[in-house]
Design a protein around this nucleic acid. Sequence first.
DNA 1: GTCTTGTTGCAACTCAGTCGCAAAAGTGGT
DNA 2: ACCACTTTTGCGACTGAGTTGCAACAAGAC
Lengths: 140, 140
Amino acid sequence: MNKSVKLTLTERCRHAGLRITAPRKAILKTLEGSEDHPNVEELHRRVSRIAPGINIATVYRTMNTLAEHGLIERHSFSDGRARYEAVPEDHHDHFINVETGEVVEFRSDEIERIQEELARKYGFDIVSHRLDIYVKPRKG
Amino acid sequence: MNKSVKLTLTERCRHAGLRITAPRKAILKTLEGSEDHPNVEELHRRVSRIAPGINIATVYRTMNTLAEHGLIERHSFSDGRARYEAVPEDHHDHFINVETGEVVEFRSDEIERIQEELARKYGFDIVSHRLDIYVKPRKG
DNA sequence: GTCTTGTTGCAACTCAGTCGCAAAAGTGGT
DNA sequence: ACCACTTTTGCGACTGAGTTGCAACAAGAC
């Protein structure tokens, strides 16, 4: 949960050769302060609170650039629009509550292991994967 | 692999109270004859070969209707557009070859079981899920 | 400071998918 | 076979997320 032991997003951007502009600073800071998985519109709204005047096209472009450099992860749950999160040190998958849209992270090493086995069996190397489980609160 | 033991899509449509129109017949037939996961544009192209003159808006609407009734499954891999397949008797997940876009189906009861366990642990009931593994052919 | 190159704002644009509406066609009852 | 009722279709206009061309601007390197 504590990120202070690792590089900040800004440091990793610089390391990737990206210029640290004022809009990017604001976007990166917002991303690091977000525990959830905002879409571009929501992100733009949050960014605008700490740095007004940034165009939403800039947010779109920045998200693409960051994703290309592997600094953030792009998700597209069944609501259609892309949603993002700062790349987590620990890979995890998602429960999506279909009643509220809320996203809960989880991880299962067992599932990861079985995936590797399966891919090998089919003659593949895994590039990435994504497991989304749509759920509702258990009643009873 | 052999579907003759189960209801056809058309029969299931009728059972769902949907009208069997000429455009729908062509679309259903095309769906049943598709082993892959076409998007609407590709589907429309295929449908047009056996029944020209069907508007693509009709294909969009039909796919929505069928999906709402649970007769087909909608997927959205990372290429953005929605892709469909006739609902399979056996649930399966997908390998997506990132080099070619090709989709390979697989199934792991072990993964299904672990998902159930996990969901229960978090206090959820699973509505549906989706596991996409992006891969490349193994070299060596 | 100067130069080079990456980045931004803006407005125009693309593209998948949706929608309103009037015409057409399926289904159930007789 | 016909009617009445309701769903579906074609069409064109529209929406909304995301992209792009371009001129102005600003980071970083020297």
